[in-house]
Design a protein around this nucleic acid. Structure first.
Lengths: 199, 199
DNA sequence: CGTAGATTGCACACCGCTGTGCAACGCTCC
DNA sequence: GGAGCGTTGCACAGCGGTGTGCAATCTACG
């Protein structure tokens, strides 16, 4: 039972705590320096450099984590081999609990590390675009925007809505699913059905 | 008439050119320094400081400009005293030509000047929220999200779509209007009508 | 030509953040 | 108690951006 006081905790412990806390802190202000991140994690700047040689490395690790997690959520949803609209609704339902955590990605895709992050999310973006394309072909999604744009807008909207929780609102998963389905051109009544059921 | 070579142009000229070019440059990378902004405007860093004592002043001026312009576009649209959905469609149609120009606002609302910019856009936000609320009351907009959130999501989506033009895509005003109407819960067929006609 | 005004070039101080080196310290486990 | 490991504190160099001061330069205008 790990009685850990101040010093000498397990390295893996510290590392993940730094990552967790950095994810949260950067979510509120993407421009925070190593010093701020460190103190948020209850640790000294010097210690953070022990785990991540560069601030860039820290951010990269965070981005990889996010990409992996979102990717696996997406894979799970796709595994159902259901209709595009059901898969999307399922995806958003699964994504919702982690969307707020990874809200940093919104700010991170711009500015400095933009290309790098974009590359990490490449596979996710492609899969989403394919999914939307499939939905368009089977007439369940609209064609008001090209698939690769539509998917991004519907995807980003979820993070934007989740980001509202930072401001104090508490919004439901179904509200987010509903909204992204509407963006995709699913009729309101149908979107309602798909958003209510989960799984 | 105005044979302007390198030096000694009219002050008002230089000032606005700095602003114009800064708007564009910061739109591509919100973190550009005074040096980069200056050279983009074909001017030396020192000159920029002659017009804007601080980088913050420059950004603030930009934000004010944006808020004013968007505000007046919104006022024009609202002046029609039409239904909420028509007013919104009209608003987006008018907004579209300037949305790409002011895409900086997307990045600017976060990070450092966030609160300040948020304050400037306060009136616009409120008006939009009222408009959406009115639409919800008259059953033309959905209620999947509270009015003040829904308006923001539908509003931000337009800028997000406009931002795509930075990546090379060229998307139409009607595509943007259509999408934001869908977000608001307007049925696809109706959204189509509203997006096609302008004015 | 001469003046006024805008711009330039350069030097400088300052600040905050980054990344490193190293000795000291505290905890844990043997 | 001693070895090992993670953490701390602190000092330091470097970098890049900010903002300022000032003399020099160019241009327009009269």
């Amino acid at each position: 039972m790990q009685n850990r006081s101040d010093r000498a905790r397990s390295t893996e412990d510290t590392r993940t705590r730094i990552l967790d806390v950095a994810l949260d802190a950067l979510g509120q202000n993407p421009d925070l320096g190593m010093s701020a991140i460190a103190s948020s994690a209850g640790v000294v700047r010097r210690t953070v450099y022990g785990y991540f040689p560069t601030r860039g490395d820290l951010v990269r690790t965070l981005a990889q984590r996010a990409a992996e997690e979102v990717g696996s959520v997406l894979d799970e949803a796709i595994a159902s081999h259901d209709s595009a609209e059901r898969v999307w609704a399922d995806f958003i339902a699964r994504l919702w609990p982690v969307a707020h955590r990874y809200r940093v990605m919104l700010s991170l895709r711009r500015g400095e590390h933009g290309d790098e992050i974009h590359a990490l999310l490449g596979p996710v973006d492609e899969t989403l675009a394919d999914l939307v394309r499939r939905g368009q072909d089977s007439r369940v999604f609209g064609e008001h925007l090209p698939a690769h744009v539509l998917s991004q807008v519907a995807f980003a909207a979820v993070f934007a809505i989740a980001d509202r929780n930072r401001v104090g609102e508490s919004l439901s998963a179904s509200a987010a699913a509903m909204t992204s389905l509407l963006i995709l051109g699913v009729p309101e009544s149908r979107a309602q059905e798909l958003s209510d059921i989960q799984g």
